[in-house]
């Protein structure tokens, strides 16, 4: 780890001003990912701007019923918040499925969105990696990729996004609030994460030096009946092999509204729009759930070691939606 300067920002505008024009500056939140990356030699900032103390640590219900979550709210506080647990239970579950109690006490919402991939080649600085050293190549595509992407990847990068929280946020149409040098701006989550293409090192649409100030969840009654499930190689304290956030509203056996998002299958939390469209207005049966999953996964391009993720996600979709449908019927 090379030497760096450290400073604390007292306001959002000040933080952004401190960052302006310095590509080697980084905002420091909980540090659970950034400090790890610095120790691993993946990140080597010249200046850290500590934003943990900014007044962005609140969760509020806005007048229109949406939920505003400040960027420095810790994962623990997010998951423990009564409004989150009541209105978006899958979000609380997703957060609780991530990392460990210690890390959730430190990690922030803003930092969670910006987590880097857990690809072993990305973390091992002796390896080529297009994310870390653009143009150096992606050894994972032909190497070890058992836990890599099946959707939306390119030959330049097959890494996945590791966030659990982000999967629930994707299902619930989260909008990311940012503060740029030009002032505040809003980025819906689908626009926040960029497609991999041939620029896997550019992961988000966040302008240089911009600060995430919060996330807004629009009101979504369907989310009150939602669930998150994570499948991993250890019962706890492990990244997902696949995860799924699902919400379902059924009336008279017909799907009125459904939300589906997948984790650990793509470079970003994967909103399963095709599956949602396939299901909406149709019967809430296991066959329909499977057909919807197949429709979504038709775009999957599995590699040698991760082909299992296709049936895994399909099985999870059927199991989760069946569970939610049975619950609704009770």
């Amino acid at each position: 780890m090379r030497e760096f300067r450290y400073g604390r920002a007292t306001g959002v505008a000040e933080a952004v001003a401190l960052h302006a024009g310095n590509p080697e500056a980084r905002f420091l939140g909980g540090g659970t990912n950034l400090v790890d990356l610095m120790k691993s030699g993946v990140e080597s900032p010249e200046l850290l701007i500590d934003v943990r103390g900014l007044p962005l640590d609140r969760i509020e219900v806005a007048g229109d019923g949406s939920l505003r979550i400040g960027a420095t709210v810790t994962n623990s506080d997010l998951a423990a918040h009564p409004e989150v647990r009541r209105r978006y239970p899958a979000l609380a579950q997703a957060v609780l499925a991530g990392a460990s109690g210690q890390l959730r006490n430190m990690a922030t919402v803003g930092g969670n969105l910006l987590q880097r991939t857990r690809c072993g080649y990305f973390y091992d600085t002796i390896q080529p990696c297009n994310k870390r050293r653009p143009g150096s190549g992606c050894p994972a595509v032909t190497g070890e990729h058992r836990n890599h992407a099946i959707l939306g990847w390119s030959e330049h990068c097959v890494a996945t996004h590791p966030s659990d929280m982000g999967v629930a946020l994707a299902a619930f149409d989260a909008v990311v609030s940012v503060h740029t040098a030009d002032g505040p701006a809003q980025l819906p989550l689908p626009d926040f994460y960029l497609p991999v293409g041939d620029t896997p090192h550019r992961e988000t649409a966040l302008p240089p030096g911009a600060l995430i100030t919060g996330v807004t969840l629009p009101p979504a009654p369907v989310a009150a009946r939602s669930r998150y499930r994570k499948v991993r190689e250890r019962a706890s304290y492990a990244f997902a092999n696949a995860s799924i956030a699902a919400a379902l509203d059924i009336r008279d056996g017909v799907v009125r509204e459904v939300r589906l998002a997948f984790g650990a299958v793509a470079s970003r939390p994967w909103r399963a729009g095709t599956a949602e469209r396939t299901l909406t207005g149709g019967p809430a049966t296991a066959e329909a759930f499977a057909a919807a999953a197949d429709a979504e996964l038709a775009a999957a391009r599995p590699l040698t070691h991760n082909e299992y993720k296709v049936p895994l996600v399909r099985n999870l979709v059927v199991a989760m939606l069946t569970e939610l449908a049975e619950e609704a019927a009770r």
């Binding site: 450290y6 540090g31 691993s40 623990s76 460990s100 109690g101 890390l103």
Partner: peptide, 26 residues
């Protein structure tokens, strides 16, 4: 030293945290 084992757990402002990922300056 990377938040992957929990051996460095302390209470920080009363909450458990992995001290290895907490910069002292911060």
């Amino acid at each position: 030293d990377h938040g992957q084992c929990g051996a460095c757990t302390v209470l920080l402002d009363g909450r458990r945290a992995t001290a290895c990922l907490q910069l002292a300056a911060a």
